[in-house]
Amino acid sequence: MSTPDLTPVDATGSTDTVTLSRADLQRITDACDRAAAGEFEARIVGLASHPSLSGLARSINQLLDLSDAFVREAAAAMRQCGSDRFHRPVLLRGMPGAFRHSARTINQAGRKMRQSSESLSYVATLAAENATNVSSVAAACEELNASGTEIARQAQDSSKQGHEVVETVGAAEGAVRQLSDAAEKVGRIIRVITTIAEQTHMLALNATIEAARAGEAGRGFAVVAREVKELSRNAAEATDQIVKQVERMHANVDEVVGHIKSVDAAVEHMAQSASAISQSVSEQVAATREISANIASVTQNSQQVSRSIGSVKGSDGTESAA
């Protein structure tokens, strides 16, 4: 077996000769080649007590150990972060120089990821709360809609009934006016009767005078004239009473007409109010429908937010395994 010579120069500038077997050289070269290919499993074993190569073997092994440890740690720490687990930093202890610097950078990224994840979780909680609130608002809107529709229906009924009452009251007013007209006619008839009674009285007076002038022959006639005078006086008294009754009737009819007018005004007012209620409630129902439509879109948006958060939070092991 031939042994190639390595001729290093030490710090003092002097040179000495190190001998190594081709097999040892090959092992060192292999370990370095594998590391260069990104594979840190190889180590140089068996040269720890070699008089001149132990230092070289130790240095190469140290380099491999650090690279190996760093790669394992960095990958594991990031895999945990990818699963929303942020308790595991790349440990800085034992990591020198650029390894330490990179470990710090990874840990800072992990901290950022944790903050983002926490914010996302918070947003997810809010979105879930929103969804709950929105669905109770939607339920309330539906109830409001139903009761609004019912009120509108009842208000329309009231309005219709009001109009019917107004018509009835109008008819009653007409009937009362006819009554008033009839009383007027009775009054006119009474005046005719009164005139007849007065004229009858005058005739009775004249008959009495003529009877007196006729003397004994007119005595029987005088009795008839007295009876006629008595009848006309009775007729005059009766008509006086009728006149008083008719006047009272007039007063009553006027009072009734007044009451009917008040009722008419009140019912008209009620019918107007019912119409106004019906109108307002219709507007409320329309507004509630609009709210319902908006809530449906809000619900859709919250669901979208929840789904998006779910998909971000769910992408863990499967992706990192690839």
Binding site: R43, V45, G46, A48, R58, N61, Q62, D65, R93, G94
Partner: peptide, 29 residues
């Protein structure tokens, strides 16, 4: 600032121990 490093095969038999391992444990390679 040191790491004790070792490797084993699947059965747990030591295939590598670094210089810190050797120094602290007192075993030779």
């Amino acid at each position: 600032d040191e790491l004790i490093v070792s490797k084993t095969d699947l059965a747990g038999v030591v295939t590598y121990a670094n210089d810190v391992f050797l120094r602290v444990s007192g075993y030779s390679e």
